[in-house]
Design a protein around this nucleic acid. Sequence first.
DNA 1: TATGAATGAGAATTCATTCAT
DNA 2: TATGAATGAATTCTCATTCAT
Lengths: 204, 204, 204, 204
Amino acid sequence: MPYRTTDRTRDKKDAKRTAMMQAAVRVFAEKGYHAATVRDIVAAADVAIGTFYFYFPDKETLFVYLYEETADFLLRTVEQGLRRGDSWPGRLAAALQSFVNIATYEPAVVQLLLVGGVGAVPALVESRGRFRNELADLWQEALDEAIAAGELRPQNSRLTAQGLAGAFDEIVLHLLSLPEPTMVAAAVIQEMTTFALRATGYSQ
Amino acid sequence: MPYRTTDRTRDKKDAKRTAMMQAAVRVFAEKGYHAATVRDIVAAADVAIGTFYFYFPDKETLFVYLYEETADFLLRTVEQGLRRGDSWPGRLAAALQSFVNIATYEPAVVQLLLVGGVGAVPALVESRGRFRNELADLWQEALDEAIAAGELRPQNSRLTAQGLAGAFDEIVLHLLSLPEPTMVAAAVIQEMTTFALRATGYSQ
Amino acid sequence: MPYRTTDRTRDKKDAKRTAMMQAAVRVFAEKGYHAATVRDIVAAADVAIGTFYFYFPDKETLFVYLYEETADFLLRTVEQGLRRGDSWPGRLAAALQSFVNIATYEPAVVQLLLVGGVGAVPALVESRGRFRNELADLWQEALDEAIAAGELRPQNSRLTAQGLAGAFDEIVLHLLSLPEPTMVAAAVIQEMTTFALRATGYSQ
Amino acid sequence: MPYRTTDRTRDKKDAKRTAMMQAAVRVFAEKGYHAATVRDIVAAADVAIGTFYFYFPDKETLFVYLYEETADFLLRTVEQGLRRGDSWPGRLAAALQSFVNIATYEPAVVQLLLVGGVGAVPALVESRGRFRNELADLWQEALDEAIAAGELRPQNSRLTAQGLAGAFDEIVLHLLSLPEPTMVAAAVIQEMTTFALRATGYSQ
DNA sequence: TATGAATGAGAATTCATTCAT
DNA sequence: TATGAATGAATTCTCATTCAT
């Protein structure tokens, strides 16, 4: 057999696939689902239009997939942050650090998740709902642990979790709209932590 | 309906124009900017397509205009709520009451503002930024007054305001995703108030 | 109302619609379903591509509709021919006259029905089957009447009818492939009649 | 399989090539020329797409080639049938037996020839014309021999031949549309023979 | 003012074909 | 010989917008 699906060719294919997905994330984040055309994406990835359809079934499927991948990445990152600290303030600060890191170094991730294509892709409504729920789950679990540990007073941890998630989004989105987000990131993390400690009724 | 209650539109007695705008809000809220076609809008308003272009220059301009009108309506309503109470908890509860009222009785308003077409309409980025800023301004002013009155301790009122705005959005959006939002609205307002009092460091 | 859906505008619309359908029949007959592009059709009708979709839902629907219209036209014409004569030979000759007339003066009709798009459009399989059945029905009825009248001997009139229909198609298709079909049409009709009288066992 | 039994392909011992051609006949017959993609064909033959272009110059050339091969196969088979009998009715019955055998056991052959891609492939118009002519030639020769032998009365044997060819196609195509063609094949052959004897003016 | 027929740029997607390996 | 990744012309269809009536 003169032609083999060797490791090298497979690696190459995977690499191209990954490159195209990264290009797609950038374009989707920048323009939103509808305004981003397949031509934009292939131009960003520097391939022909047919190549797109060789790797992906269609634009919508790719978008939903990227959304879910991205959501998963964000969730896992925040989750790891939450595991890093040994007290509620510590876990909180670590998780916010993680979140703000993603936002400043991979702004496309946040753009895609928070403003990308909601309302544009029916199939996404469900994905978005799942994402917001899982994000709230994450915070709620952390809250419940802190409550169980006596660090926080009993409260409606579900609603608190939702409130925190929404608050962090708003603040980070605003941060990203500043000319030099990295310059103030540390201070914002500090302030967000303070806000969140208050919001969760943490004293001392 | 938002654009009926504001000054900008009150004087325009054009019934047909108003009907078309109401139809447009509904359609935009339901389908999102791109999926909503001009044909959908004129069908909902029961006029011909040419009529649309007699009253409005184009789809995008109308959308941005509706967004701003709607944002204005929401801001004014929340502002009125904030003026109704005579203490921070009172003002807070009244403002949240107003906000949740809009969300439950005019869900299209919230849909339009929060998920409508951000990312889809470039011209909207600026409008959205302005809306979020003005919303934060509102809360910040209320916070600063409460701080000045000694009801709240000094804090970064800007960031707190942003956090509150984001938290309320998330919670209300989740409320709207429930099968019977009105059934739990009162309880949610109560819980949101509790959350916000904690988040603003209110004690006693 | 400055604009009215007057008779004149409606007539104009109908005329355009008809013109486009005629153009479509020509193009489909000439190129077959797949090779005929919507661009070809609108070029032949001298309208813009959007106009096509203003009048027709899509290419396939139009094709199937034209096929059925055309089949119906052919069936009705042959049927009338069959009613014109007062004996089996007379009816036969009249029907063949009608059929050959269509074929020579409207070759597109025959092209569309016999070679147009069979195999290309799934939805057409059924239409084609119905057409061939109805054509056989026509001949069978005529045969059964002639048998009942004692003009023909009893026979499997269904199979005879199918045979006649197939035979006529083949002969007429060959006729159309000649450089000057009209020059030999009369002679061919004569010969076809002779063939068909033999095939139906007509004597004297 | 047609191209196995003809001289043209017998010497080509290329199994892969043959497998691809057999797959192609099936796919073309099933889907028609346009709807059958090269990918369908290579999938059916279980080879890679590049292999297709190693063996065949392009899709259209292959199709025309297959059409001609298949036509050749059918012509040779019918011809053999015509040689088997020793009287006109005997030859007729044998030829029809051969034809119906092909149709029932290799329906793809008939599908390809009769509904495959006429109108879809410009280059096929000529091939089809040649096929129909050769088929008519076959019947005409048999008729002329029978006339010369005094079995049939003098007649326009060309037109009779065309008529028979068309009639047989129609009847066989209808046979194939039945749920169980083989169950009625024998009876249909019998009836077709009767029809053809009448149509050729055979008496006694 | 109001209408709706007409337009055509532009989008997603397909698929025959090529060519480096 | 055989492979399949890559290509891009071509196709169908949508929809914002215009303009004669």
